[in-house]
């Protein structure tokens, strides 16, 4: 064999390389930074906000953004910047509640259906189909009007209609690994029942459920804002983005910022979770690796 080291002459050719963004500047990291900002602002709202979000000051009503009120004031003279900061809190709490309620239910239904097959599967999946074909916002509105408006009831109402997509995905994935060699091997070693489901199937189904949750969060934020807009969410005077847009919409032609500021907050939050979810999916699915 020829000694290659002394051949490293200047005429060494290299494959052309395409221009690429720096490695750290990817969807996941941008989404993560935005979500962290959101969480930070919500947590530190009392420290960051220059005014009490609920104190009304009629003299200062509907002021345009200036050095004192950065985002202006609403029709009760409340500082919009402070209200938007505090408004992040109910939104994030509601979103977390929905996730905590839906992911476990969806996973349990899906894994049991996929693992047991037969009648168990048919019954569970038909229930899933039925819930899935309900119009989610209408059902949520109906539930809230029965249960009464509020944070917890809003979360319950949204959770009721958003678990089926998790169940379907978990079932499909369970089906695809049900006959895998490693599960057969585990059965041959005497691992059965709940032990097999929790210890062996769940770890493989969980990552994509988390991705889906992150992707769903954007939609849930919009739905939560929708409930607030229709007056079915958290009740005033507590700051909530949906109801803030709703009250701002009355003056949208003259004082557009009153509706636009919480509107942008909703956009930002929804985008943050969408980016995070997209990035997570790219990270976890090797097929997207390119």
């Amino acid at each position: 064999m020829m000694d290659s080291t002394n051949n490293l002459t200047p005429h060494t050719v290299q494959k052309k390389r395409r221009f690429r963004l720096p490695r750290w500047l990817n969807t996941f990291n941008i989404g993560l930074i935005m979500v962290m900002m959101l969480l930070g602002l919500a947590l530190l709202a009392p420290l960051l906000s220059p005014f009490d979000p609920n104190v009304q000051n009629i003299q200062d009503r509907l002021l345009a953004p200036d050095a004192v009120h950065w985002f202006g004031t609403d029709r009760f003279g409340r500082d919009l910047f402070s209200r938007v900061l505090f408004g992040a809190r109910p939104t994030l709490i509601l979103v977390s509640l929905v996730v905590i309620l839906t992911v476990p239910i969806g996973l349990a239904v899906g894994i049991f259906a996929g693992y047991f097959g037969g009648w168990v599967e048919r019954i569970l999946m038909r229930i899933t189909d039925i819930v899935m074909s309900l119009p989610s916002l209408v059902i949520a509105l109906a539930l809230v009007s029965i249960l009464g408006p509020g944070l917890m009831n809003g979360a319950l109402a949204l959770a009721f209609t958003s678990w089926p997509s998790f169940a379907r995905q978990a079932r499909t994935e369970t089906l695809s690994i049900r006959r895998s060699d490693y599960l057969s091997a585990a059965r041959m070693q005497g691992v059965t029942g709940l032990r097999l489901i929790v210890g062996h199937i769940l770890p493989l189904v969980l990552p994509s459920a988390i991705v889906r949750a992150a992707l769903n969060l954007g939609g849930i934020i919009l739905a939560a804002a929708g409930l607030g807009f229709l007056g079915m969410g958290i009740q005033p005077p507590t700051a909530e983005w949906g109801s803030m847009v709703s009250s701002g919409s009355r003056v949208i032609f003259d004082q557009w910022w009153v509706a636009a500021v919480p509107g942008f907050a909703i956009l930002f939050a929804s985008l943050a979770f969408n980016l995070l979810g997209d990035g997570l999916r790219d990270k976890m699915d090797p097929r997207h690796d390119k």
Partner: peptide
């Protein structure tokens, strides 16, 4: 099993 890449839980 046949495929050592598929028979151990990943």
């Amino acid at each position: 099993f046949q495929d050592p890449y598929a028979s151990l839980h990943p």
